[in-house]
Simulated scan of single mutants.
Amino acid sequence: MKTLKNNLNIQEIQNNLKHKHNIEIFDSIDSTNKYLKSKINEKNYGTIVISNEQTNGYGKNNRQFMSNKDVGIYMSILINPNCLIEESLKITILTSVAILSAIKSICNLDVKLKWVNDIILNDLKVGGILCESQINLSTNIIDNMIVGIGINVKEFEFLPSLKNIATSIENNINFKISRNALISEIINFFDLYFIEKANYIDLYKENSYVLGKDIKVIQNDKQFYAKAIDIDDSGSLIVQEQEKIIKLISSDISIR
């Protein structure tokens, strides 16, 4: 058994899992995604790396992700999605629904999902997802993918620059939760959707933070305003710009 003073516990997590996973826990690491990328040829699929702290956590477009000690879940999962590049969004969507399902199961909170990789609680960001892939260029198929998950769990004081942007789970409830229990639930729901192929697209749409809303789309060096009208089975966001219907695969969006 590996127990850290911060109470992250491999045995406690594994005891509550439906499917077996090799789990590694660190007290501090630069980035769980970076670690798995550096060891990708040495690790089995399904390996999960968790750290109590990240000293260089990052998100989409290499934006810094605050990963303070003892207060969050910072984890990465190595998988083989065996899908085309165009289908890779589905893994981010799937992971979002797994996190939503786990938080609702443990905390009964009304979590929303902002396309494509943000977890929203009371209009503030409580977590995010970063999927990084190795692609076989001859087949256009993703051979390896690292699914990075970051969630603010414990109650703590955010920097002034983040107070109107971010929140934590415990900042929205009146009881303490076990990070081990929440990690186990996230993994179990991830396995339900990824391994057991349970439907998740409908849940994503039902809990969307953007569908039906007017949004600003930032795409490369251009931006335009549109209305989010649907999310298709590949995970793409369908928007309407005046009379045009546009399918978004990779863009930054904000609510108007």
Rank of each mutant, 00 (worst) to 15 (best):
G72H: 04
F26I: 06
S38T: 07
N68T: 13
N16E: 12
K112W: 04
I253V: 04
I77S: 01
V153P: 00
E86D: 14
N117L: 07
N152G: 06
I195Q: 11
G127S: 04
I73G: 06
I119C: 04
I231S: 01
I99A: 06
G46Y: 03
N7C: 09
I77L: 09
G212N: 08
S138F: 12
N68A: 14
G59Q: 06
A98Q: 05
Y204C: 05
D230R: 05
F190P: 03
G59A: 07
V111G: 08
V153D: 02
S51T: 10
I79S: 00
N174S: 14
F156H: 03
I129F: 05
N152Q: 02
D202M: 11
Y45G: 06
K205M: 11
N188V: 09
N9V: 05
L211Y: 07
L36R: 01
E243C: 12
L109M: 09
D70F: 09
I99R: 00
G235F: 03
S208W: 03
S250E: 12
I151N: 00
N199R: 11
K125W: 05
N44G: 12
F175M: 13
N171A: 09
K114I: 02
I186A: 06
V217K: 03
Q242H: 15
L36D: 01
K60W: 06
K205S: 11
A102V: 04
I119L: 08
Y193F: 14
D252E: 13
E157G: 08
M75H: 03
D230Y: 08
N180F: 02
Y204A: 02
S236C: 15
G212L: 12
E241D: 09
K5A: 15
C107E: 07
I151G: 04
K125M: 06
L159E: 14
I215L: 06
I255R: 09
V210A: 04
I103V: 11
L8A: 03
D110Y: 10
N136D: 15
K39W: 08
I229N: 01
D233A: 14
K2Y: 12
V239K: 00
I249R: 10
K163E: 13
N82R: 14
K34E: 12
E157A: 11
M66W: 12
I103H: 03
D191C: 05
I187V: 13
L89Y: 03
A198W: 07
G150E: 01
Q240F: 04
N7K: 12
Q11C: 09
N117H: 08
I146G: 00
N56P: 05
K176T: 10
I249D: 08
S105H: 13
E185K: 10
I187P: 00
F194V: 00
P81I: 01
L237S: 03
